[in-house]
Design a protein around this nucleic acid. Structure first.
Lengths: 250, 250
DNA sequence: TATTACATCTTGTCATAACAAGTAAGCATA
DNA sequence: TATGCTTACTTGTTATGACAAGATGTAATA
């Protein structure tokens, strides 16, 4: 009855529910709790971790939001079928996403300009037309083959700072977060199909008229300030954009 | 001190936090609380709604998840900058999504077959190869112009039931949920760009070689059973697939 | 036998309470 | 003046307790 299962540290700076969440996540991933099996009930977890039910429910709630478990009212909590890409659907930079799948990537900066914002860019970044913005064009390589052209628009000063960084090997997202202290929240994407023109084809080694995936991405801070507006042109044959969406409650 | 602000019904079947959430959502949308303004603090809301702080936090938590508000530890809760498409990124059927934007849509069933599952379909729906599945091909129209070809694979019996429904005007998603009682959870999407071939071009009135957005969508129930596997071929020029993603905590 | 009622699991909702921790402004001190 | 402390706000975390409501098996009843 008194056997504490793991090292829960009530005085740790990391909240109890986070610690419990991580322990449960580990147990799910290592097979202690298997797919479609019932997890211990909330009251069992309350006893075994020696915390309150609120704390257990907070941990389970986060795991549910991440898709690792699901609950059925009156029955119990169950482990979800594992998915090939468990954590997609979240906002990731290209390098981040590829690195997590074990691919080797790097980028080549093909141009950097400080230019007046056109109508579209100004609107997206909530600036006035002709305000100066930084435009960074990069070609992304996956396993040494060119795969996309990224055109990023950022507020002038941020871009001028970014261009001095190691953009060949580091994601803009990670630099903005880790080095500059921005907290990235949501992004809006628009996706469409188009044909490569001559200049795009030259950059990512496609023939004119080859299919291209064109993604518009506007990234916001957690305070909902637009920070980064990008056009991503992906080779249609070489890449598949994967994500997960949830059905909203009606 | 005793002025109850709105009609909160403690005995209603709809939870208090949901009622409060809807009231706050209304106030945000009608401008009572404006973008980037601070909302009333949790303790103020606790007093004005005469509920506990847990209930207020539950309501605010949901609004935060929906992106309407954001919180700053130690400072307060703020209204987010409103977005053009507030609730996207959730799983919606085509008609559902278009109807919510005020477009007129209908579908035309071009074929219905019961066929043995090929390798890919069997794997996606977690069946054995050559198990019989239903294949439904539909052309979607937006404002009377063809915009996409949807090829849906479902377990045989579900498809045979669906084909008797009014698929011209009702989404498969909504029928599965409202009429058949399935609870839809997450979906996996893969998106790529390709060129229309002759038969696809004929169906959605494109010339051979025109750019097409090809989406693979596998939809799961909340119990993570795969239910519906679809290929969606969108005209690249006529439609933009919009969504919102969140940055996951690291 | 078939149905109903009950007991007992489960998760869902809500109240009250306390303390931690981040923010910011004002005040006292060096 | 500049620095640091106090205080009063905010949201974040956690405990304890209670009842509602859905699911399910068992026992009592028709």
């Amino acid at each position: 009855m008194e056997s504490k299962k793991k090292t829960i540290l009530p005085l740790s700076p990391v909240p109890l529910y986070t610690q419990i969440k991580e322990i449960l996540r580990t147990r799910i991933l290592d097979g202690t709790y298997k797919a479609h099996e019932q997890m211990p009930s909330e009251s069992e977890l309350t006893r075994s971790f020696d915390v309150s039910r609120i704390t257990v429910r907070q941990a389970l709630g986060h795991l549910q939001k991440e898709g690792l478990i699901f609950k059925i009212h009156g029955k119990g909590t169950y482990v979800s079928q594992p998915k090939a890409f468990q954590n997609l659907g979240k906002l990731q930079g290209f390098g981040e996403a590829m690195a997590s799948m074990g691919y080797e990537t790097f980028s080549q900066v093909v141009s950097f300009k400080v230019i007046p914002a056109d109508k579209i860019v100004a609107k997206k970044l909530q600036l006035t037309e002709n305000d100066m913005v930084s435009e960074i064009r990069r070609v992304r390589y996956l396993n040494r083959a060119p795969i996309s052209l990224d055109v990023s628009y950022l507020p002038r000063t941020i871009g001028e700072r970014l261009i001095k960084e190691d953009l060949a090997h580091r994601d803009i997202f990670l630099i903005l977060e880790n080095d500059y202290g921005y907290s990235l929240g949501q992004a809006e994407l628009q996706i469409e199909a188009m044909l490569a023109d001559e200049s795009l084809g030259r950059l990512i080694q496609l023939e004119e008229g080859a299919p291209v995936l064109r993604i518009e991405r506007l990234t916001f801070t957690t305070e909902n300030q637009p920070l980064d507006f990008e056009y991503l042109y992906y080779r249609g044959d070489a890449f598949q954009y994967r994500l997960r969406v949830e059905r909203g409650r009606i």
